[in-house]
Design a protein around this nucleic acid. Structure first.
Length: 173
DNA sequence: GTAAGGATTGGC
DNA sequence: CCAATCCTTACT
């Protein structure tokens, strides 16, 4: 059913709405051999604009953060610690830099483990989830209970931003 | 040009 | 606890 696929309207939501809404959705990846992997997203984090000092966009518009200024639905991937690729999904309207970090999926705890399994690399920077044939989101009707927590790995940010409850975790039943 | 540091992970 | 490993950003 193609109408399970999430479209522009979903990604155009503000990040504080989109990040919890992505928990429970299916992250879908079609590999070059044609096989498709579908994983329920179990944990996300919101990075919210230039004012958010934990968000990469707080450094302003740079070659790396440029994609966050695009309209929602684009992929923001980057190399961290020279070792790991992390997957983010841009949300909101154009010129409103924000993104959702996909931290965990069912069976894959950890943002770098996830991108390894999905075989995502820097070539996915800017990928459009609305029309891509190798990466997209689907809604299978799953409506999980969610709890919030502070974001991980941002000790460099001042408390005002470090302590924001912008991490969204699926509650296991 | 140079330097510092990171939205992590796995091993000791 | 700490190393791995390299790109991005800031500053000279």
């Amino acid at each position: 059913m193609s109408d399970m696929r999430l479209g522009q309207k979903f990604f155009a939501q503000e990040v504080l709405t989109a990040a919890p809404a992505m928990v429970g959705k299916l992250l879908c990846r079609r590999f070059t051999d044609g096989t498709v992997l579908r994983l329920h997203i179990t944990e996300t984090e919101a990075y919210n604009g230039e004012a958010d000092l934990a968000c990469h966009a707080s450094k302003g518009r740079t070659p790396r953060t440029e994609i966050m200024y695009a309209s929602g639905g684009k992929v923001y991937v980057y190399l961290i610690y020279g070792l790991h690729i992390l997957l983010n999904i841009v949300t909101g309207e154009q010129e409103h830099p924000q993104a959702v970090l996909i931290r965990c999926c069912e069976g894959y705890e950890g943002p770098a483990k996830l991108t390894k399994v999905l075989r995502l690399d820097c070539g996915f920077y800017g990928e459009d989830l609305v029309c891509s044939d190798r990466l997209w989101l689907e809604d299978d009707g799953c409506l999980p209970k969610i709890k919030t927590a502070p974001r991980v790995g941002i000790d460099y940010a001042p408390p005002l931003w470090r302590d924001k409850p912008w991490r969204y975790i699926m509650i296991k039943e």
